[in-house]
Computed example of a mutant assay.
Amino acid sequence: MQNSVASDEQLELTPSRKDGISEDLEETLRNFGCELIQSAGILLKLPQVAMATAQVLFQRFFYMASLKEFGIVEIGMGALFLASKVEESFTRLSYMVSVYDNLLRRIRKQPTYPPLDAFSQRAYDLKNMIITGEMQILKKLGFNVHVQLPYGLMINYLRILDLEEDEKVAGRAWNYLNDGLRSNVYATYDPATIACAAIWLACRDQAIKLPPDWFSLFDTDFENVINAAGQIRRVYYIKLDREHLPLYTDEMNQWLAKHT
């Protein structure tokens, strides 16, 4: 079963941009939404595969829906909750609510003590957002939550290129795959292309020359590899004003009213 990949039309004009949200703001919110998923997943002690799956589902969702209709907190929590079940590493709603509440308070520079009351209206609202977010993801993606990640492919490719024992190359390539989850590359390219992009970036960093036409060994197109590498690299240049970003739909409407 192949990964779902966004069409050229979806890439050119996303639902968010149709609603007047700038490309820069959309990219920033996608990046930050994935960062929140990763941070929450670490605190919840979920395996990397669950966090990665959640980030891919999050990215795919916003090619089907607008940031004006759905906030990154709601969909991020829903994606992580769904991915924890898909990857058989289920976590409790109450745990996720507490973790996200703590992260959001830190972002907004609000006191983190006392911790969230499990019976408060805030806890109830966050739980409802998780359930709603999960159902909206399933609905918009047509229940197609299959995600093939490129980690295994990358290791095999390094072995074929006789680079598996080079810890610096392998480590950097692995990091590029992780960091790329905050970009849209997993929703726009197949796993083989993403794996090759991470290897190419890592080898460039280490000034290692790859064999001519090495990418053809893995049935990939070099232009696509370069473009995917560029998308991964973009995440390092996005500046996040975490405290003031619109995280919920009501905040997005206020943002649009002020900036348009």
Rank of each mutant, 00 (worst) to 15 (best):
A6M: 10
K109W: 09
P15W: 01
T132Y: 13
E12D: 15
T193Y: 04
S98V: 06
Q148V: 09
Y157C: 09
C34T: 08
N31M: 12
M252E: 02
F70N: 10
I194L: 10
D125F: 10
F81A: 04
G78W: 06
E9Q: 14
M129D: 10
L104R: 02
P111K: 03
P114L: 07
K127W: 06
K168Y: 15
I160K: 13
L36W: 06
S183Q: 01
F215Q: 07
E164I: 12
R60H: 09
G76A: 07
S216T: 11
Q55F: 11
T14C: 07
N175W: 14
H259G: 08
L29D: 04
I199H: 00
E69P: 15
P150Q: 05
L11C: 15
Y248N: 10
W214H: 07
N253P: 07
R17V: 04
S89W: 10
I238R: 07
M154S: 04
V56C: 05
F32E: 06
M51D: 10
R204T: 12
I194E: 01
F32A: 02
Q48R: 14
I75V: 05
G71P: 00
K68A: 13
I37H: 00
R17T: 13
T91E: 12
G78P: 04
D24W: 15
S39M: 05
R30S: 07
G71L: 04
R182F: 11
L240P: 06
I130M: 03
L177I: 11
T132P: 07
Y63K: 00
N253H: 12
M64L: 08
I37M: 01
R92E: 15
I130W: 01
V235S: 02
R108Y: 12
P47L: 01
G171L: 00
D101I: 05
D101R: 07
M96G: 09
L217E: 09
K140V: 04
A40I: 06
S120I: 15
K239A: 10
W174G: 05
N144H: 04
A79Q: 03
I130C: 02
